[in-house]
């Protein structure tokens, strides 16, 4: 997608990306539980490295950003900056109830309710916290998305279309008796 040229070099890069997605984790104000479960994914029982999934510290090396916790007001701008540093194509996983919807912290004075209101999210994972196998499943889902996006030539095909502008004079279906 973002690779210049076409043909063999582009196919090679996207093949490599699908085989070994690199991940960076950002704690945007969570309670630590999700982060601990992500580290548990790296450990002998789950061991995601055998699938080629590597956890990296720098967002500039990453393909997938996992965001844990509901972003606090202080972290929101930093989360945005971390996201901007990731090269395209990038995918975002909102982990846990907090990342998806705010969870138990929804509506507190110091939080932005969900990750979605700061950066676009591709995969949501439910649970408080999600089990390590659910986290692995989310990463696999990201790889599926990456494969579909490569076939479509970009992310645009699955983005929500804006509602059509109302035609003046025409009644909406709800108003028709």
């Amino acid at each position: 997608m973002a690779v210049p040229g076409n043909g063999i070099s582009r196919r090679l890069v996207s093949w490599a990306r699908i085989k070994s997605p690199w991940i960076t984790v950002y704690n945007s104000g969570g309670c630590n539980a999700c982060d601990i479960e992500i580290i548990a994914c790296l450990m002998p029982r789950f061991d995601v490295e055998r699938f080629g999934i590597l956890v990296r510290g720098s967002p500039r090396h990453a393909d997938i950003l996992i965001v844990t916790g509901t972003p606090t007001l202080k972290q929101a701008s930093r989360l945005r900056r971390v996201w901007e540093q990731i090269p395209e194509p990038k995918y975002v996983i909102a982990l846990g109830a907090c990342g998806s919807s705010g969870g138990v912290f929804r509506g507190l004075y110091q939080v932005v309710d969900r990750v979605e209101s700061v950066i676009p999210v591709d995969v949501y994972v439910a649970g408080c916290p999600p089990r390590p196998d659910e986290i692995i499943n989310a990463v696999v889902r990201c790889i599926d998305l990456l494969r579909e996006d490569t076939a479509h030539g970009g992310k645009e095909w699955r983005q929500k279309k804006p509602l059509p502008a109302p035609v003046p004079g025409e009644k909406s279906p709800a108003e028709v008796p």
Partner: peptide, 22 residues
């Protein structure tokens, strides 16, 4: 201060059943 969420204030607004999960 990065992870400050305001839990203590939220705990004042929830009853004893709802405050334990928080």
């Amino acid at each position: 201060s990065y992870n400050h969420r305001g839990i203590e204030k939220a705990a004042e607004q929830r009853n004893f059943i709802r405050v334990l999960p928080l």
